[in-house]
Design a protein around this nucleic acid. Sequence first.
DNA 1: CTGAAAGCGCTTACAG
DNA 2: CTGAAAGCGCTTACAG
Lengths: 343, 343
Amino acid sequence: MDKRRITINDIAAHAGVSRSTVSLVLQKHPRIPEETAEKVRQSIAALGYTYNRNAANLRRRTSQAIGLVINDIRNPFFAQLTSAVEERAAEAGYMVYLVESAEQPARQERLLESFIEHDVAGLIVCAATGTPPQAFDRFLAAGIPICMAVRPYPDARLDFAGSDNYGGAKMATQHLIDLGHRRIAFLGGERENPVRIDRLAGYFSGLDARGIAFDPALVVESRPSLTSGVADVNAVMRLEARPTAMLCYNDFVAMGVMHALRCAGLTPGEHMAVVGFDGMPETEITHPPLSTVQLYGRKIGSDAAELLISRIGDPARPPTRRVEQATLIVRASSGRPLNANGE
Amino acid sequence: MDKRRITINDIAAHAGVSRSTVSLVLQKHPRIPEETAEKVRQSIAALGYTYNRNAANLRRRTSQAIGLVINDIRNPFFAQLTSAVEERAAEAGYMVYLVESAEQPARQERLLESFIEHDVAGLIVCAATGTPPQAFDRFLAAGIPICMAVRPYPDARLDFAGSDNYGGAKMATQHLIDLGHRRIAFLGGERENPVRIDRLAGYFSGLDARGIAFDPALVVESRPSLTSGVADVNAVMRLEARPTAMLCYNDFVAMGVMHALRCAGLTPGEHMAVVGFDGMPETEITHPPLSTVQLYGRKIGSDAAELLISRIGDPARPPTRRVEQATLIVRASSGRPLNANGE
DNA sequence: CTGAAAGCGCTTACAG
DNA sequence: CTGAAAGCGCTTACAG
């Protein structure tokens, strides 16, 4: 088991050339005559040699690994982003270290430290809610490029790739208003989450543009999980003046909300309009199908990977922000209010 | 940007000690007096030094990285597994390289090669369907430990962590039979997928144990996606003798199946019993809630990580198989057949 | 075109 | 207890 690894020295000896020559063959250097190269390649095959990229990286002072920090890989949106990052990175010859912050800044801090130790070429980070300012100063000081993704982060020196959460929420809100709704709740998400802050701002703006007063009782916070929808619905159905529509922080919350409505004997899309956020594939086949603000996780992932790779190649490039439009997908869950036309 | 990295040489110079001493302090070697150690630690803080683990690994001929190969991170089951692997690995001081095979053996092959180049300490692999025998011989020859996960793979030299797919499918089948069903379809999944083969075997065995003849017309293959359920349902509803129950390859298929049934005017759990597989969280809040065979992705992930880490420590340990029991969760989607009691 | 030599940032016997 | 030296597997000027 503990056999010595085959190195270029072994190849050199076997092929009867020097170490340098082997190295140049590996790099497909044009100066090496085909005959020599072929001899070397045969030795490589014969001995079962594999290149040690870490050793090369150490010598070259480069790295072929990038780090990706997300909160929760089980969220399909982040899963899509991860998948796209991995794909683009592989195309460019990078491997990706995946790491979950679980929304804990202290844990994220440790993970960042270990990325430096492992000498990553760059980082894509969806910052945990509560990440302190200057959290990335060490990387900037060390010249390690960072691209922030998904979660807006107030540091103008950093590249960013994300979605137009504000515009998406505003669109969804106006859609509900145009349907005749006047009391529209905003359910779910945690208060300090910058993504929620943007969506909430879009919601406010959507109400405002149509001259509808904002009622704080209609905004409920919670952890954005499938099961939190129940509590969110209850909070808002207890009100004197109930809402007739619910804009949800994300699709998880919306699916939980639809379930809770049914448990209360209400049919989503009929007794209550429901709109989600993210565009998870499942929304297409819920009962009824869920209206949602479609985001593009894969696109954001590949945006982020591109920005990072381009910055690794050109550290002096000015910071870039890439914000993908959102699309409102209207399905059966968002119908007209009952009292508007007796539907 | 291109500043020289701070190294132990810088620390040594700053603290007025030798490189060796710094290295020993970093390793918390007991021989170093507290006074010296403190001086070194202060220099580390003052200069903003970060350990270069790659350099240390090269010298020590070890590695603190493990590779994880999965098919599709967007499948919640694999997302859970990944999350658990990452967590256990971090506890043991390893970083994880995540990579997707997209169910393509050739792509998987390239990824494996690049894991060797990046000098991983070990590998956890959910083998792509169609992975050839001996695909991992190079790793064994190089002494790089591998733990197979989820997908059974016929190589007795390798550790394995997975689920009891056979037992789970048998249990689900018998549950449907006990409810009074006699014509039970098995929908979805691709033919060569070893997980499907096990589940199908459990289905056969469940039928057989109750003396029910197997009808090949009731077994339909497809890519296991949300949308494939529609075609699966159609294939089987065209039959002269329709099924009264559907055991699905996984929850994605089952959710698609429920949607397709509704589109055809049938209510899942009433006109047709439906059972899924995997136990995705969403199954709890579908309408109706979906009966499913609960698997434990996190547990399998941590099993795999444990097996791998233990083998890295003891390469001679005999191969171990860890097979987690499955649990049948009965919900409203699996009711009695209509003709049995007019429900 | 090819080889000898220095060096990436670390560790680890080995002297002193 | 501390330092000088060799070496992990590679790359890259620099001679020849």
